[in-house]
Design a protein around this nucleic acid. Sequence first.
DNA 1: TTGTATGCGTTATCAT
DNA 2: ATGATAACGCATACAA
Lengths: 333, 333
Amino acid sequence: MRKKNSAPTMKDVALEAGVALGTVSKVINGIPVGESYRLRVEDAIRKLDYHVNSYAQGLKASRTYTAALLIPNTSNPFFAELVYHINTALLKRKYRMLLCTTDYDSRMEQEYVNIAKQNKVDGIIGLTYNPNLQVEENIPFVSIDRSMGSHIPCVACDNFAGGQMAVEKLADLGCRSIAFLRVGSSLDSEPNKRKAGFENGCLARGLSFSEKILDDDEPLSKFEHFFQEHLSDGRLEFDGLFCVTDFLAYQMIKILKKMGLRVPEDVQVIGFDGVRAFGDGDYFCSTIVQPVRDIAEMCVDLLLQENMATKPPLVCLPVTYAYGGTTKEEAEL
Amino acid sequence: MRKKNSAPTMKDVALEAGVALGTVSKVINGIPVGESYRLRVEDAIRKLDYHVNSYAQGLKASRTYTAALLIPNTSNPFFAELVYHINTALLKRKYRMLLCTTDYDSRMEQEYVNIAKQNKVDGIIGLTYNPNLQVEENIPFVSIDRSMGSHIPCVACDNFAGGQMAVEKLADLGCRSIAFLRVGSSLDSEPNKRKAGFENGCLARGLSFSEKILDDDEPLSKFEHFFQEHLSDGRLEFDGLFCVTDFLAYQMIKILKKMGLRVPEDVQVIGFDGVRAFGDGDYFCSTIVQPVRDIAEMCVDLLLQENMATKPPLVCLPVTYAYGGTTKEEAEL
DNA sequence: TTGTATGCGTTATCAT
DNA sequence: ATGATAACGCATACAA
């Protein structure tokens, strides 16, 4: 009779099957054993409903088949989508995912890295904002959207090309003057290249442009002031607006409408990320779409790739454009 | 000198501090030891940047401080919110969360339960759809939105009251006839009580009502047919619409607008869940709000509560109403 | 109060 | 090919 209240172990299986412990281990790990032995062991496993204890396994192998994902939250739909696809990609590789929501808190980010630092997880994928995050060299780490040194691969979409693409689209749709709006982190990160791409695009097309950039702690109403300043005779001085995220675009559209301006008639708006309502509903605005799924798979590939030498320092994945109702697409027909 | 390429262990710490292994263990677990010993051990821990190996710990204690969350995905914003709050609640209790996205797949749900069945996780919180899910009695399990037998606690919002509340609101706002729309799972689950609450509310207020319920695999266009059937002289026969989720409401509003009907002028719409754009933006519609955070915390409380005897079979948490632009709130003023 | 020895479940090395 | 045994890192009962 088995110890009550406790899961069966290999020993129990060996006993049940009448074979040695080592034989059971071999069967489980696919190492060839005599046919009759194998069958007896397999029967016993089924009979006892035995499952290997992955913690004992991990202890032995210092390999846990678990990866940690550091991300601010899952409420933001872009993050939520990322979590989903990374989880799926890990699952395909037989990996499990420890979710670590950091709430943009540098302390929590470091805390989680520490937790993972030893052999508790096999690797970490992190979308973090802590500029001083200490990551050990000996644990695989892949960063999303922020370069953390050449020994840590960074995966992002092609933010620069995305900025250019937004300008191209707006120009093609008839815009003559475009404004760029951004809020947030002074931290040096890949998404900042959206601005560079925007400027580059405007210069290339000979478009006039203006920019308004807010700090994280400034109120959104400053954008309203910005709009007001650029208002003459009830018309905006620019007819195109590129917002650094869909969320910002969404908020700006609300303000614009409140001011009596029409989107896209008076001003066309393009956002960034490709977020959709309810995950698979409509886009909130015309937008530059990040290839979230590809980003997720690339992260996992890089994380689990053994050969450090072939890990690139920065991978940029191509973006696409999607119409979301805030641009004058009809003009193209 | 330490073994290279491997994390320090208690043994290393003991060596460094010049004390016995057991002493280190005691320091770490807060068991009183001599002051001078403690200090030496703590110094050594800092010096070596030692962290306990939670897998060895788990193996020893058959307690892993890890809980699994089974959920279809994180793309759906309601699920995303749930994930976030459950993660946060677990964290508060020093627990880690293994995220298991099941994609509504019964096989995956069972698979994950099996993985967790032994002592790999200390408990499971599940929002699942597999009617035959086999859950062992000896592993703590808490179900969300679906009752799985009296030995498994179920946490949900007060769906019945929510259905009633929707009717009350619509009636108060002037509706004379209300339609109820639902899509999905024939599976017996708590959210089905929204319909019961709706009917009960209509009866109590003496309102006429109609209902249209679709299977998961039926096209949404059937709702459009439903609307058309109830159209006479370009006006709908009902002036209130209660949709079983915000997502459905969102989709219905699109259809209604396409048909030239105005919301809320021609028909007022109330959804269910309390989902907001971008996690903390506007509500998509006027809605019955689920107390997601309370649900999350209740799940974790129940999961980690040792005393099985006091675990209630079903916990219903109160809902609230929120205005989201699809009802004629002005009428109240 | 401190140190030693044993076992948790698994895998791998070694004789058989 | 199979079976016994040591070792992974930690906690604890027990001995000093």
